[in-house]
Computed example of a mutant assay.
Amino acid sequence: MKRLLTLLTIATACATSFTVSSADYTLKLGHLANEDNVWNKAVVKLSEDVYKKSNGRLEINIYPNDQLGNELDVINSIQLGTADMTISGESLQNWAPKAALLAIPYAFKDSEQLAKAANGEVGKAIEKQITQKTGLVPIAWFERGARNLTSNKPIKTPDDLDGMTLRVPNVPLFVSVWDALGAKPIPMSFSEVFTSLQQGTIKGQENPLSLIKSASFYEVQDYVNLTEHVRSWIYVVIGQNQLNRLPQDLQKILLTSAKDMQKYEHELMLEDEKQLVNFLKEKGMTFVESDQALFREKALEAVQKSLNKEQLSLFEQIQKL
């Protein structure tokens, strides 16, 4: 009895990292989003669907909030075989350079063009290189909310930037593009942005609406300028070895369910974007229609100069869609 109590205590303490399952096959999916995020809701649906369709033979355990480590940690764990699935995007360019196209400024004019790229030859080329270079197989993709510029004055054209200090992530391409647009871009950790805006060290920042809300930037910024300068997508991936170990019927169930999940997530994302706009307006932010064509035209040269030959080829393919 004493030994049984000890085992139960250990199992309880390790509940977040160890799950007893009666399924024939169990997969661990770790990602960075929280429980309320549409990505998490989508992969939870995937887990429920595969469990039901496989009659309990295949189970996917979901670990949100970086429980299995950050994005690169989980990718490494999948490659080592200690995790199985994750959600990842342009970070994969650390191995597969074509994955940079998942988040290039002004690559896409709208969601329709993005979908054509993701579902077409551009997407296939990116997915092929990801699998070849990382051993990860993309099984579905999610469109992410566009990145927009916030500020304390309306920004309708690049001329309105006029040397404005602007926080950007530590990505050389982002620095080059905003410099070309006339701003003064400052690479900075995301955790420092709110205080820097509050103190006036920087005058603006750029992020999707979801992060503008979650970081409470509406408390220190008055305007959301609809530059929509980055439209991007992200993949749900599984290790190729892990996928190959599944029987053919379970592989089919997983891949079919993943496509259903993709449609489900897209519906959630569209509804979430509407709710985010309403929320930010209620918090006092004003939405400004920026001249996206003018921004794109002025940023184009900086974008093209930053891309290598194979990236530029894909970028040019996208422009023809």
Rank of each mutant, 00 (worst) to 15 (best):
K2G: 09
L4R: 04
L4N: 01
L5P: 00
T6D: 09
A11N: 07
A11Q: 06
T12S: 15
A23E: 05
D24E: 14
Y25E: 04
Y25L: 00
H31W: 01
D36M: 13
D36T: 13
N37A: 13
N37T: 08
N40L: 04
K45E: 10
L46A: 07
S47H: 09
K53H: 08
L58P: 03
E59H: 08
D66W: 13
S77V: 09
T86D: 15
I87F: 06
S88Y: 12
S88H: 00
L92V: 07
P97Q: 03
P97C: 04
L101Y: 03
L101N: 03
A107V: 04
K109W: 10
D110L: 03
A115R: 10
G120Y: 02
E121S: 14
A125D: 07
I126D: 02
Q129L: 09
P138V: 03
I139G: 02
E143G: 12
G145P: 02
L149H: 01
I155A: 00
T157G: 08
D160K: 07
G163Q: 02
F174W: 09
V175R: 05
P185G: 01
I202K: 00
N207M: 07
S210L: 12
L211I: 11
K213E: 14
Y218G: 05
E219L: 03
Y223L: 10
V224F: 03
N225I: 00
V230H: 00
W233N: 06
W233S: 01
L246S: 07
L246Q: 10
P247V: 13
L250P: 07
I253M: 08
L254E: 07
T256I: 12
M261H: 00
K263L: 15
E273D: 15
N278V: 13
N278F: 14
F287R: 00
L294H: 04
R296N: 11
E301T: 15
A302C: 05
V303W: 05
K305L: 11
N308K: 06
N308A: 08
K309W: 05
E310V: 00
L314A: 07
Q317H: 03
I318Y: 03
